[in-house]
Amino acid sequence: MTRTIARGFAFPEGPRWHEGRLWFADQHGGTVYVLDPDGHVYEHFAVPGGPSGMGWLPDGALLVVSMDERRLYRRGSDGQLVMYAELAAIHSGQSNDMVVDHRGWAYAGNVGFDYYSGEAPWPTCIAAVAPDGAVAVAADHLHCPNGSVITPDCRTFIVAETFASRLTAFDIDEEGRLFNRRIFADLGGYAPDGICLDAEGCVWVAVALANSVIRVREGGEILTQIPIEAARPYACMLGGMDGRDLFICCASDHDPAVTVKVRSGRIDVARVNVGSSGGWP
């Protein structure tokens, strides 16, 4: 059901389909890669502190998260990275996934605690970065806010709470604020990581510990489950020429000490029946 189009990465995450190419963050390798639809590397560049979530501003510039530095960088047409926003004041753990809307509002989550040192988890927040670069807390008391999407009408924000085993939704007001928190889908024992939204309003969810990617309807019904062979999926993104290629970021492990040595990270693709939503990312 899936095929591998590229391999040899440390830990691929945060995939985005943009202008006919797949962008993703090799987090532990410190590099953003850009692939053509067949999996050939078109471009790559380093991000200090390790890259994570990505999104594009209205002027076409890329925003990319630096995990360890807990900040956003802006990359313009000259290819240079310039510091755009500091997140450390409100991100208590590594910054991670992010979504950027059509107005230039960026919403970035964070792990919230030192996962690799064995620190106990605690709730944390999503940072909202306004188009003028101002940073504020968009929502708090979230359990590792991870992958996130915004619906095509720009009215609903959905985020994966990894350590709460659920997808949580918010309304978005005209000022970019999140309100009316509610459960979009209770995933039971599944711990969601990266997500993407399809044209029917269902969410594809990468579930690493279940070695599968699932398609979930609002309310929690699982409609489809795609198993991943010999690896764990950490993120997914709809793209391709018709929006029906589900790109899946996979690796055999998530520990940086392991991933940079074995470089088992790969990009798999599955053909699905419903295409991308046209929202964000």
Rank of each mutant, 00 (worst) to 15 (best):
R70Y: 04
A136G: 09
R266L: 13
W122P: 00
H141P: 00
I228S: 01
P145S: 07
C125P: 05
L246E: 08
V203N: 07
L238C: 11
I183N: 11
G118A: 04
R155D: 09
A120Q: 10
Y190F: 14
V82T: 15
F179S: 15
R217A: 15
V149W: 07
C125W: 00
G118C: 11
M1E: 13
R263T: 06
F247I: 00
G147K: 09
F170A: 06
L72E: 05
S52I: 00
A230R: 14
P121E: 04
D153L: 04
W122G: 15
I195H: 02
I158L: 08
Q225S: 11
Q225P: 00
P281N: 11
S264T: 15
V34T: 00
A231L: 00
A85H: 01
M237S: 13
G93Q: 05
I172P: 12
K261F: 01
A169E: 13
C202F: 07
V135E: 04
D193Y: 10
A230W: 00
G275Q: 07
D253A: 15
R217E: 14
G188W: 12
R232Y: 04
V137W: 05
A185N: 04
M241H: 14
Y116L: 15
G243T: 04
P12C: 08
G118E: 08
V260W: 02
K261M: 03
G8L: 09
V272D: 01
T2Y: 03
